[in-house]
Amino acid sequence: MKKACKNIISYTLLSLGAAVMLLPFIWMLVTSLKTPAEAIVIPKMWLPKTLQWTNYVQAWHAAPFARYYLNSLLVTSVTTLGQLFTSILAAFAFTHLQFYGRRTLFAVLIALMMVPGELLLIPNFVTLAHLHWIDTYAALIVPWLASIFTMFVLRQAFQAQPRSTYYAARIDGANDWQYLWHILVPANRTTITAVAVLQIIGSWNSFMWPLIVTNSDRLRTLPVGLTAFTSEVGTNYPLLMAATLFVILPLLVLYLLLQKYIIAGITKADLKG
């Protein structure tokens, strides 16, 4: 009896919390389907009389969202792939190759992981300015092509791979490069997917950096484009909410599909170190 009572309390609290968590999403969705008048009417109504799907079409054309999408897709995919590539190579070197100063170099990199990225903002901006990279795709991508965090997670995974697999592959005639790409990487695809998904989330949602290094509309990524859009639509909240949904939707879908990888990625990264 006591246990049942406790359970009821637990579920009630959790449901209440979940409602609070979901509220902004639901409110965004319903607002995006209202007319501007319906959106501001008091008392609030939850559902509009007719669903205004045209809001999405209107919002889509009100700003170059197609362009923003392409930019976000390009930046996210190139940074993610690039980061995986550099991290996989480095993680392999740290786990499978012999070289002088291996421990020291690794310790230095781990220490760097604790430096807040924001501290590097200004000097990086200056560097890019001197390279004449401001307002180019390179500025959006190149500085993010290396992630010590990703390298660290992959190193942990590569380290856990039984050594015998490596020796077996070498005996079977594979060189290091072949072993890496034919065996090690495919055998660790779960971990690689996990870090890749975390990177996609970070890259897709990143705001301050693209805001600072881009000036022109044609280079804006979705989040930056969205904030620019707010000043244009003013108080047309249904349009604004529709546009917000554009930004959020791809990652929501990705999250629901790859949930287990994301959670694995977070727990692996933070607790196994």
Partner: peptide
């Protein structure tokens, strides 16, 4: 199921969801 819901905000763009909150906090509407 609950875990999925509680984690949702983390995967959404901070900027985008802050705009939604801006709307929720609106004085009149």
């Amino acid at each position: 199921f609950f875990r999925t819901i509680y984690f949702l905000p983390f995967v959404t763009s901070t900027v985008a969801i802050a705009l939604v909150w801006n709307w929720i906090f609106h004085y009149n509407h």
